[in-house]
Design a protein around this nucleic acid. Structure first.
Lengths: 173, 173
DNA sequence: AATTTATGTCAGCCATGTTGACGTTTCTAC
DNA sequence: GTAGAAACGTCAACATGGCTGACATAAATT
C-alpha cells in the first residue's frame, strides 16, 4: 500500500462529460433528509417503533380510510413487510380497520386518537425543522421549494395519495 | 369490526395546536427522496451493490483522502457496518486505501477510476432528475432551494464534509 | 513504558426489506 | 349458481444493513 498526505479534503469534480453534475444538491438532499427523519427516530424509539411504523401511521392518519392496497402503492413495499408493522399497530391500538361498505373485502384503515397523537407529535418535530429552514425565505420562495420538491417526484403511475397531492397543488396555481 | 365507506381519501389536518403543521412539505420530502434514491437503486442492483455501497463510494469519490473516521462521522454508522461494505469495495477494486504519511495509523480512502466511473454514472442519473425539477425555476429560485436544504441540516457538530459544504456555501454569498 | 488512538474483525442480534406458497372471504362474470 | 379473480392475511425462509460487545494490532502520545 502506498502512503498519502492526510490534508484537507476539498471536494473534487469528476469529469463532467456533457452537463455539470449537481454534486451540491445531491449531497444537500442526503444530509437534509438524514436530519429530517432523524427528528422522528428519537421519539419513535421511546415507543418501540421504527421508521416503518412511522410511515404507515403517517399516511393512515393523513388519509383516513386508506385501503391496504393503497398503502402498498404509496410505500412501495410488499404486503408481507407491511403486514408485520401493521399488525403491531393494530394490536397496540394505534390503528383500527373497518370493513369497506361497498366492497366488503377491503380493510379501510383509520388512526385512533392515540395514533393521531403520535403522528402529530412527530410532524410537530419535523415542522419545527422546516419552519426554521424557511425562516428568511419569503412566501414566493417557499412556493419555489414546493415546486422543486413536486417536480422531483415521478409522475407516471401516481398512487392515490400522490394524485391527491398533485391535484391540490395544481388547484392552488 | 365496524364497516365504512371507501370513498375518496382527502387529506385531513389533525388539530394544529399552535402553528400549522407542514404536512405538505413533509410528504413532498418523503416522495422526492424516495424517487431520488430510486434512480440509483436500479443501477446498483446490476453491480450487486446496495445503497450502503453507494453512500461510501460517493463520499470517497467526492472527498478523496477521506479517513475511515471521517466517513463514520458523515454516514453516522458504526465501524462494523462500514467495514462490511468497505471490504467489498476494496476487494472488488472500487476503492484503494493509502497509509497516512503524517499519521501512519490512518487509512486514507481513494476511489479508483472504476469507482469514479460508477459514482459518476449514478450522479448523472440523479442530476437528470434534479435538472428536470429545476427546469422552469430561475437561478435565484435554485439558490433558494439550496438555501432551504442547507438550513434543514443540523449545524451543531458538523463533520468534515459538512464543514466543507457550509464553508463553500458561505464563500459564494 | 504505559496509555490512547485508529483501525480491523469475529460473533450475534434486530429491523425491515424480499420471494414463494397457500388460504379465506367476497366480488364479478358467465 | 358456479367459476374465477381480487383483496387481504399469513407462514417460512432469506438478504441487507443497521446495532452491541469483545478483542487484536500498530502507531502515536504522554
Amino acid at each position: 500500500m502506498a502512503s498519502a498526505d492526510s490534508r484537507a479534503t476539498e471536494p473534487r469534480d469528476t469529469a463532467p462529460r456533457g452537463g455539470e453534475l449537481r454534486w451540491d444538491i445531491i449531497e444537500l438532499l442526503f444530509f437534509a433528509y438524514r436530519d429530517f427523519v432523524g427528528d422522528a427516530d428519537q421519539e419513535l424509539e421511546a415507543f418501540g417503533f421504527g421508521r416503518a411504523h412511522h410511515r404507515v401511521m403517517h399516511f393512515v392518519t393523513r388519509y383516513p380510510g386508506l385501503k391496504v392496497a393503497d398503502l402498498l402503492d404509496v410505500l412501495r413495499i410488499t404486503k408481507q413487510s407491511l403486514g408485520r408493522v401493521l399488525k403491531q399497530l393494530l394490536d397496540e391500538g394505534y390503528i383500527v380497520q373497518k370493513t369497506g361498505s361497498n366492497d366488503r373485502r377491503q380493510r379501510l384503515l383509520f388512526a385512533t386518537p392515540k395514533g393521531e397523537a403520535l403522528v402529530t407529535k412527530l410532524a410537530t418535530l419535523q415542522t419545527t425543522r422546516i419552519d426554521r429552514a424557511l425562516a428568511g425565505i419569503d412566501p414566493s420562495g417557499t412556493e419555489t421549494v414546493r415546486r422543486f420538491l413536486r417536480a422531483m417526484i415521478d409522475r407516471d403511475d401516481p398512487d392515490k395519495v400522490l394524485e391527491t397531492i398533485f391535484k391540490n397543488a395544481s388547484a392552488k396555481e
